[in-house]
Amino acid sequence: MGKVIVVTSGKGGVGKTTSTAALGAALAQRNEKVAVVDFDVGLRNLDLVMGAERRVVYDLVNVINGDAKLPQALIRDKRLDTLFLLPASQTRDKDALTEEGVERVIGELKKYFDWVICDSPAGIEKGATLAMRHADVAVVVTNPEVSSVRDSDRIIGMLDSKTLKAENGERMEKHLLLTRYDSLRAERGDMLKVDDVLEILSIPLLGIIPESTDVLKASNLGAPVTLSDARSAPAQAYFEAARRLAGEIVPVTVPGEKRGIFGKLFGRKAA
């Protein structure tokens, strides 16, 4: 049985979809079978970031309604044989999702895949609660700023109360993925520091993704950053996060703290 991960945040625009695609591609490169599922019915984006927007025939809502079978709706990635996408419907809205339907689809996906990564819509309404409902693990994507942190806190509260795991009295495994982190701005006080965010949210850290133009470039190319530019700093950070998700112990480095030789020299002079 595969593991079901929900990538969630509460707030929009913090990098859920980018992170879903990047983590999915990173895990698939370890030769594990991965399905990424877009739960953002009505505002689908994951297909664009995965570069599969022209190959969408059937979607999640079709499968839930029984108009299509799951294998018909799954789109295999052209670059990675083990990576599949279940796209969202653009023409419907989140009311088209039913609890029984989602349960059935997730149950079926779990049988065929090692990882089922659900890209949650923003907000705390039906779409988001259904995306998290059947998850085993939650990745909470947060930007180092106060509104994102507070929304993440709200979502963590919901993960601990509204999910099947929570209702069965089990503990939902939760990880923090800090995205768009800029160490210089954090040092200047424009952004929250890693420790501040961890102190407020008090869940374990999965990784810190540095703010980088590579991420936007990859999105516009229609490729997860871990596929298009695997040597870039954000891609490396996502690879490390994926290894931690898979259970490996990899120490977390704060981006920008391992400065080059010049940085060290200048850093000393400035001090």
Binding site: I124, R150, D153, R154, G157
Partner: peptide, 8 residues
């Protein structure tokens, strides 16, 4: 025994 989250 756990943090009280936003909204709770």
């Amino acid at each position: 025994d756990e943090p009280v989250r936003s909204g709770q």
